[in-house]
Design a protein around this nucleic acid. Structure first.
Length: 428
RNA sequence: GGGGGGGUCGCAUAGUGGUCUAGUGCGCCCGCCUGCUAAGCGGGUUGGGGCUGUUGAGGUCCCUCGAGGGUUCGAAUCCCUCCCCCUCCGCCA
C-alpha cells in the first residue's frame, strides 16, 4: 500500500511515478485521491459530532431530563447516519488504495514488457555443446528421473514426478542452497505454514489482484502459498520490531503452488512452468535508508548459488512494464538452458520498500520510546528449484546421454558424480 | 468432533453501565540521591487517525480493552457473530 500522505501532499509526483507503469494505474490513483478527500471530509464531520456528544454526555451523569434525552437521541441519530456514510467511504477508499501498485524506483527503466528489461551483467558463457543437446523433458525421461506421465496421472497437466537421482538432485539442491544462505550468508532458516489466511496474502500483495492464480480452500478459507515470500514477509505482521533488531535476514524452503491460469498456453512442455514446485526464498526486513544496498546484497546472495553450481546467467533489471505490483525495483536472474535453448528466470530479487510493510502493518523502532516506522522488505529466490534443475541437466549433459553433477552438489548426493541413463522405462 | 475456561496499555493483574481521561505491580526511560552499583524518592511509559503545523517540534480533537455488529443519552462492562489461546474427553500421523 502506498503512503496515504503521497496522495495528499504530493499527488503530482506520485501520479507521474505511476504513469511510468501504465495509464490504468494513473486513473486508479485519481479515483483514490478523490475518494480519500471524501473520506477526510466525512471524518472531520463525524469527529466534530462525536466531540459534541462526549462533552454533552459528561454533563448528563445522574438523572438526565426528558428534554436532554431527546436532544441526545437526535444527536445519536445524526451521528449514526454520518457514521454509516463514513464507513462506506472508508471501504471505498481502502479498496481503491489496495489495488494501487507500488511506485517504481527512479532507477527503473521505462518499458512496456519483459522485452524491454535491461541486461545489467552476464556471468559465464552459454555452453556450446558439440552435439545436439536434448531438452530436459527428453533427457530426464531417458535418465529415468522424471515422469511427466505419472504426474499427469496423479494430478493432471503441469504436475511432475521425480524419481531416484532426480528426486535426490532436488533434495540436494535445496539443502545446498539453504546451507549457503544460513552458514555463509547469515540468514536465519525458517519453517512456516504453506497455508495462510487471506490477510497474509493481502499483506505481501498477492491479494486482491491475483486471487485467480492462487489455490484456495473454501471450507477453512485458507490459501496455499505461491512462494514462501508470503509467510516470511508476514512473519512480523502486526508487530513492532524492537530497536537494534534490523536487518532481519530470513530464508526458507517451501513448495509453491500456482494455478498458472494467466500463462495458460505458455511453456507447456517439461517442468519449466508447473503448478507445484520447490523454491528456496530469502527475505530481508531492513531500515528504509539501507534498502537499495540490501537489494544489491540480496542479488549477490542469489548469484552465489548459480556461480557455485557453475551455471551461466544474466542479471536483468526489470523495466516498469514487467515490475510486480508490490515492487519498487527488481532484478531477475536468468540462467542459460542449453537444451531448451533459452534463458530461464530462476530468481527474482526485489525491493518492495514500505509497500508490504504497510499492508502487513509491520513496524520498527530505532530506539526505546522512539516513534514507529515502516521497515523496507526485500525478497528474492535463492533459487527456484525445477528451473535450476533444468539448467543443470541441460547444460551438463554428455554425448552419451549422462549428466555430470556439479562438484558443489556431490557431497549432498552421496558422492554421486554422474547420472547415467537407465536401460528401460517401467512401462511397456 | 464434544464439554469447560479465557483474550485488558511490553509482561502480570484489577475493573460487571457514567466516578475508566482504564488502576496496581514488574519491566523500561528521565531526574534526584549516591565513591560505583543496587536500594530509595519523584516523574514518564498502548497503538493509530483527522485538522493545524513541522520535517517529523508542538497544539487540538477522534478512535483503540482480540475483531466486527447491536442495545443505550452513555459500553472494557450487557447481547449477537467471528477469530485466537488454554484445558478435559474422543479420534489420529
Amino acid at each position: 500500500m502506498l503512503n496515504p500522505e503521497l496522495l495528499r501532499r504530493n499527488p503530482d509526483l506520485t501520479r507521474a511515478a505511476l504513469a511510468r507503469r501504465d495509464d490504468e494505474s494513473v486513473r486508479a490513483f485519481d479515483r483514490a485521491v478523490e475518494s480519500d478527500t471524501v473520506w477526510r471530509e466525512l471524518t472531520a464531520r463525524v469527529e466534530a459530532l462525536r466531540a459534541q456528544r462526549n462533552e454533552q454526555s459528561r454533563g448528563l451523569r445522574g438523572k438526565p431530563s426528558p428534554e436532554q434525552l431527546d436532544q441526545m437521541r437526535a444527536l445519536r441519530d445524526e451521528l449514526a447516519g454520518l457514521e454509516t456514510q463514513l464507513q462506506s467511504a472508508e471501504v471505498e477508499r481502502d479498496t481503491l488504495l489496495s489495488w494501487l501498485p507500488n511506485l517504481p524506483d527512479a532507477s527503473v527503466p521505462m518499458g512496456k514488457d519483459d522485452a524491454e528489461n535491461v541486461l545489467v551483467a552476464t556471468w559465464g558463457e552459454p555452453k556450446r555443446l558439440d552435439f545436439q543437446p536434448l531438452p530436459h523433458w527428453e533427457l530426464a525421461e531417458t535418465l529415468g528421473i522424471l515422469d511427466l506421465e505419472a504426474g499427469a496421472r496423479l494430478s493432471g497437466a503441469r504436475f511432475f514426478v521425480l524419481k531416484g537421482a532426480g528426486a535426490m538432485l532436488q533434495r540436494a539442491l535445496t539443502n545446498f542452497m539453504l546451507d549457503l544462505h544460513v552458514h555463509q550468508q547469515g540468514y536465519t532458516e525458517v519453517h512456516a505454514p504453506y497455508l495462510v489466511r487471506g490477510e497474509v496474502m493481502y499483506g505481501s500483495g498477492q491479494l486482491p489482484k491475483f486471487a485467480d492464480n492462487l489455490y484456495h480452500d473454501e471450507e477453512e478459507d485458507l490459501w496455499l502459498i505461491p512462494t514462501s515470500e508470503v509467510p516470511l514477509v508476514n512473519l512480523y505482521r502486526e508487530q513492532i520490531i524492537g530497536p537494534g533488531l534490523l536487518p532481519l535476514k530470513l530464508t526458507a524452503q517451501s513448495p509453491c503452488f500456482r494455478r498458472e491460469k494467466v500463462a495458460a498456453g505458455r511453456d507447456i512442455r517439461g517442468i519449466k512452468r508447473v503448478k507445484q514446485f520447490y523454491k528456496v526464498e530469502m527475505v530481508r526486513l531492513v531500515e528504509p535508508e539501507d534498502s537499495m544496498q540490501h537489494l544489491d546484497a540480496l542479488v549477490a546472495d542469489a548469484e552465489a548459488v548459480l556461480r557455485l553450481l557453475e551455471l551461466p546467467y544474466q542479471r536483468m533489471l526489470l523495466c516498469t512494464g514487467d515490475l510486480g505490483v508490490a515492487m519498487a525495483k527488481t532484478f531477475d536472474l536468468n540462467v542459460w538452458c542449453a537444451g531448451s535453448d533459452e534463458w530461464q528466470e530462476v530468481s527474482s530479487c526485489s525491493n518492495a520498500n514500505d509497500f508490504q510493510a504497510r499492508r502487513a502493518n509491520i513496524r520498527f523502532r530505532r530506539e526505546q520510546g522512539g516513534r514507529t516506522e515502516y521497515p523496507h522488505t526485500l525478497n528474492g529466490s535463492g533459487v527456484a528449484l525445477p528451473r535450476c534443475l533444468i539448467a543443470i541437466l541441460e547444460n551438463n549433459q554428455q554425448p552419451d546421454g549422462s549428466v555430470v553433477i556439479p562438484a558443489a552438489l556431490r557431497p549432498y548426493m552421496g558422492g554421486l558424480a554422474r547420472i547415467e541413463p537407465v536401460a528401460q522405462s517401467t512401462s511397456s
